[in-house]
Amino acid sequence: MPVKVFGLPTHILLLHVAVAGVPLVCLTTIAVAARPKWRARFGIANAVFAMVMVGVTYATQVAGQQLYNHAPYLQKLAAQHRGLGLTLVWFVAAVAVFAIALVVVSRAGYAEHHAATVTVAALAIAASAICVVQCIRVGDSGARAVWGNINVSGSARLGADPVGAGAGVPAALNVL
Rank of each mutant, 00 (worst) to 15 (best):
M1K: 11
V3E: 01
F6E: 08
L8D: 05
P9Y: 00
L14K: 01
L15K: 01
H16Q: 13
H16E: 06
A18W: 01
V19A: 13
V22R: 00
V25C: 04
T29K: 02
V32S: 08
V32L: 07
A33I: 03
A34R: 15
R35Y: 15
R39D: 02
A40W: 10
R41W: 09
F42L: 02
G43I: 02
G43K: 01
N46F: 03
A47R: 05
V48F: 03
M51E: 14
M53L: 13
V56L: 06
Y58S: 05
Q61V: 01
A63T: 00
G64W: 02
Q66S: 03
N69F: 04
H70P: 00
A71L: 11
Q75N: 09
Q75C: 09
Q75A: 14
L77W: 12
L77V: 12
A79W: 04
Q80C: 13
H81S: 05
L86K: 08
T87M: 06
T87N: 12
L88H: 01
F91D: 08
F91H: 07
F91L: 08
A93N: 14
A93H: 14
A96T: 04
F98E: 02
A99K: 02
I100S: 10
I100C: 13
I100Q: 06
L102Y: 07
L102C: 09
V105D: 02
V105C: 05
V105L: 05
S106H: 11
R107Q: 06
A108W: 12
G109P: 03
A111R: 10
H113L: 11
H113Y: 07
H114L: 07
T119G: 12
A124W: 02
A126W: 14
A126T: 12
C131E: 05
V132R: 03
R137Y: 07
R144M: 12
V146R: 07
I150P: 03
N151D: 12
V152G: 14
S153F: 13
S153A: 15
G154L: 15
A156L: 13
R157T: 15
A172L: 13
